[in-house]
Design a protein around this nucleic acid. Structure first.
Length: 260
DNA sequence: ATGGCGCCCCGAGGGCGA
């Protein structure tokens, strides 16, 4: 089962590039972030015509997540538990059933958190604590799951072309990376690093200052696999070439192939 | 790593992202 994550930076702006990538990459599941659309405004027919079931959790102008799946999506829930006052659309869950096992898909758009320190950074760290709590609950009930999406976390210095430029940034500050390591310490497997070592692998290049042409990128889009499905990992790749196309998002797709 | 880019919004320039 091929499962991809892709921060598309606006569905209206990616109305051609997203279907084009889907048609060639042929993921069974695509988990999207930053659709920047309300649910009613999401062009679901575009994907339904390609055989995808569509579940969205959107809001006006900002944020918004979605799951496209060629397999049926069951028990869809919207929003990250733990704060009823949080009205930002950043989280969606659904279950897909494979040939011999099912998996709970947790699609997330983790807050950026800049400027740090400050209230936006506090929100990011609190959100990460809620995510950890949610992962603990899924582990406790022995539900096989994966967390994927735009984590807005640079895990290590090797995940940035210019790490020194990020030292004070919310994506790389010690508290952010400590929260990331607490997730891993639950026993979760980071899919990309289970397959590929070393620097130079990025999933985001800023639109500004020629970042793409200079390969000044960061790796912030991730898959975390629960212990029950970690052994089913067959492959994990970054579709880097998508960044060099016509009217690209600033992120590129990352995908896993799981034997489910 | 921000001046620079690009997206959003009923309309123009400010908020936001990373």
């Amino acid at each position: 089962m091929k499962i991809a994550t892709f921060n598309i930076n606006g569905i209206k702006a990616r109305i051609d590039a997203l279907p084009q990538w889907l048609d060639e990459a042929q993921p069974d599941v695509a988990i999207l972030q930053e659709i920047k659309s309300v649910d009613e405004g999401f062009p679901r027919e575009l994907f339904e015509d390609r055989g995808y079931n569509v579940e969205t959790h959107g809001q006006k102008s900002f944020n918004g997540v979605a799951i496209l799946s060629k397999l049926a999506l069951e028990d869809v829930t919207r929003g990250l538990p733990g704060d009823d006052s949080d009205d930002q659309a950043r989280y969606i869950e659904a279950t897909v059933v494979g040939d011999h096992s099912s998996v709970r898909l947790c699609g997330l758009y983790l807050p950026n958190g800049n400027p740090a320190p400050g209230p936006k950074y506090d929100y990011k760290l609190a959100w990460m604590q809620r995510l950890e709590d949610r992962a603990r609950a899924l582990l406790a009930e022995e539900t096989p799951f994966l967390l994927t999406g735009d984590f807005n976390i640079i895990p290590q210095a090797e995940d940035a072309a210019t790490p020194d430029a990020w030292r004070e940034d919310a994506l790389f500050r010690p508290e952010s990376r400590a929260a990331w390591r607490r997730l891993l310490a639950l026993g979760l497997t980071e899919a990309f690093r289970a397959r590929t070592q070393g620097p130079g692998h990025y999933s985001f290049w800023d639109y500004q200052a020629g970042a793409w042409n200079r390969n000044n990128g960061i790796r912030i889009d991730h898959f975390l696999l629960s212990p029950a499905i970690a052994d089913s990992l067959r492959d994990c790749q970054i579709d880097k070439d998508v960044r060099g196309r016509e009217k690209p998002s600033d992120h590129v797709p990352v995908w896993v192939d799981l034997d489910l």
